[in-house]
Design a protein around this nucleic acid. Structure first.
Lengths: 213, 213
DNA sequence: TTTTTTCTCCGACTTGAGATGGAGCATGGT
DNA sequence: ACCATGCTCCATCTCAAGTCGGAGAAAAAA
């Protein structure tokens, strides 16, 4: 209990690692046991370093923070992982929490906030930044968005519409008749409450329906 | 000449400022004269601090780095501004250079790279990260993209198409006849080499034509 | 088992979209 | 003065798109 909390930093920005190091240096109950500059590296190194708390960036060149989080927790579920991300507009809040991250902070966080988050994570408590929490709530609302009422088939059709395909093309691609495609299109339009296929495509883009696939 | 180079840091991430500070501390010919955590703050403070070189982040909550760069150079064109950004996928490379930034580095840059960039900027030389340079070249190619052949009016029409408007709606909004709208639409379709308005909308979204307006 | 949902398909009808080929008018450059 | 370009408008025509109202089959839920 009187021991130092062992912390590992994972971030591809050297200057961020330097900055965090400066933060941790002020606390004599925290010990930095290692760093990694990518998700892959983090997964390879953490077992030798056995940190208790890991500060993890999300967006990295090699191996995302989410992937690394999953793999690390798969091997040692006791690790406490704090996600540190640059933006609060990330659609990755959900995946990160699903992956098992304890806390979710923004990089605008102050020294104190990060130190506190480390202590709390070590004690098994969760810390989530206010702006991120808001995203979580609006994210929950988003679950009720019209697009979720679409059937699997309709979603496939909508995707093709969003690619600019005609009904005839869609029919060939899905091996169904044009009439059937029209039926699907009609129900898509009424479910999304839009007037035509162009508006449906606009809807798809504005709601980022297919951007991550 | 033997004097220290006066540097100012502008970034909304405290930990990044800490990291940069650690970088600069190793060089005894560089002096950190001040910091700012937003573009607005930078513009307000730089005159009192009179730095020679400014390390500027692009994405900040209050006042973008580009805006701050423009305003600072408007008051003192002799300032050397180095852009430091997180991503190389930024479409902001062009605007930043237009705004008058000397150099463009990524936050993945090492301590040495940043120190070197500061010396070079001070000497009036430009440094551009390799990945960013590639973007610049592909960006130049993009200048020849079909959308640039559109006239002002056609661009207005395309924007409305990308909102899902019908020809009739567009006619009313622009105070012109439906026939005229059709003429514009036809020339847009042929210039963009797409088959119908839906594909035009898709084109607009995939090329981020109106995302920043 | 019965009911509901989903996916499939059909015909007939209406209409918006787009192509084509013109035309007049203003602006700006040569 | 002349030519090119951009914006406006028109008529005609063709066809893809979308609506409406139905219907059968399979699978999942009740």
């Amino acid at each position: 209990m009187a021991d130092k909390i062992k912390v590992m930093i994972v971030d591809d920005h050297d200057m961020v690692r330097k900055g965090l190091k400066a933060y941790l240096a002020t606390e004599d109950t925290i010990e930095l046991v290692g760093e990694a500059s990518s998700g892959h590296q983090a997964v390879r190194r953490f077992e030798a370093l056995h940190p208790e708390v890991i500060l993890m960036d999300l967006i990295m060149e090699e191996g995302s923070g989410i992937e690394a989080t999953k793999q690390i927790l798969a091997r040692d579920p006791a690790k406490k992982i704090i996600i540190l991300t640059s933006f609060y507009d990330d659609e990755q809040v959900f995946p990160a929490i699903e992956a098992g991250a304890m806390s979710y902070l923004l990089k605008t966080a102050s020294s104190e906030e990060i130190i506190q988050a480390i202590y709390k994570a070590h004690a098994g408590k969760t810390v989530i930044d206010g702006k991120v929490a808001q995203k979580l709530i609006t994210g929950l609302h988003k679950t009720t968005q019209p697009a979720d009422q679409l059937t699997t088939r309709e979603r496939e059709v909508l995707k093709l519409i969003a690619e600019g395909r005609s009904n005839a093309e869609i029919a060939k691609l899905l091996f169904i008749g044009i009439k059937t495609v029209k039926t699907h299109v009609s129900s898509i339009l009424s479910k999304l409450d839009v007037a035509d296929r162009t508006q449906a495509a606009v809807y798809a883009y504005q709601n980022h329906l297919f951007s991550k696939e």
